[in-house]
């Protein structure tokens, strides 16, 4: 097959963005160097569409950029004060839903939730906190699972299913009770076949999945988002390094 034909009459924030058949608005935007904020999307896995940070306005109607196929004549607005205000509200919702104490979190500085909040200029979580205690699972010899920081992006679920072929993770519960579960009758990560070398151990955008014995090897102040804006990092074709 030759290179797919490109159409280029979609615009994002006034810029012409070429796309090929099957690409989503997000795919096309990232390829063209146009940043659309996102948290649950990672180009290496099936699009998911749950965090809603990537919602854009297409010909006046809101659509989820990471799942919506790009199409002819789409006039997309993304970097608008209104959408960024609403995106900030979504990030604030994620902050109050979980228990995020950045100063005490090993992911701080490498965390995409935090970096998205910086990008959207979040000064405070604004809403009332839920303060729901959530489980911390240290049963695995090499990996911590701290659900206080899980934002339900399902990247670990997808990575374990699509890449590792293991299905270590799944989702149970409903509504605000929705939570990550692991593939063991005991409910403990240590009783699954999860390994620190699994892809799923390295895709968590937050500090919910952490490799043990790596803590603070890179000091605060020298981490990815201490030097780079999330838009630069997420636009690189490669994943941000967690090391």
């Amino acid at each position: 097959m030759g290179a797919p034909a490109m159409s280029n009459n979609m615009t994002i924030d006034g810029k012409h963005v070429p796309f090929s058949d099957g690409q989503t608005i997000m795919d096309a935007a990232l390829a063209a160097g146009v940043y659309i904020p996102h948290l649950c999307h990672n180009p290496q896995f099936e699009p998911h569409g749950s965090c809603k940070l990537c919602v854009v306005s297409v010909n006046g109607r809101n659509m989820t950029a990471c799942t919506m196929p790009a199409a002819e004549d789409m006039v997309v607005a993304s970097n608008t004060p209104e959408l960024n205000r609403d995106r900030k509200a979504l990030v604030q919702m994620l902050f109050v839903e979980g228990n995020h104490i950045c100063p005490a979190c090993e992911a701080s500085g490498n965390c995409q939730l935090q970096a998205a909040a910086y990008y959207l200029e979040m000064q405070s979580p604004h809403y009332t906190h839920f303060y729901q205690p959530r489980a911390v699972d240290a049963s695995h010899p090499d990996i911590f699972l701290d659900l206080n920081r899980c934002i339900l992006c399902e990247l670990c679920v997808r990575a374990s299913r699509e890449v590792d072929g293991k299905n270590v993770f799944g989702i149970s519960g409903r509504g605000i009770g929705t939570h990550l579960v692991v593939n063991a009758a005991s409910g403990r990560l240590g009783d699954t076949n999860f390994a620190a070398t699994d892809k799923a151990a390295h895709v968590c955008p937050t500090g919910a999945i952490l490799i043990k014995r790596q803590g603070y090897r890179i000091p605060i102040g020298q981490r990815t988002f201490d030097h780079h804006n999330i838009s630069e990092v997420q636009m690189k074709p490669q994943e941000p390094e967690h090391e």
Binding site: F95, N99, H100, I101, C102, P103, A104, Q123, S124, P125, H129, Y131, P133, R134, N148
Partner: peptide, 15 residues
């Protein structure tokens, strides 16, 4: 500061 804005490190006791 983080404590005034989110509860911060003292809020670790909330769990």
């Amino acid at each position: 500061g983080a404590c005034a804005i989110t509860g911060g490190v003292p809020a670790l006791r909330n769990n």
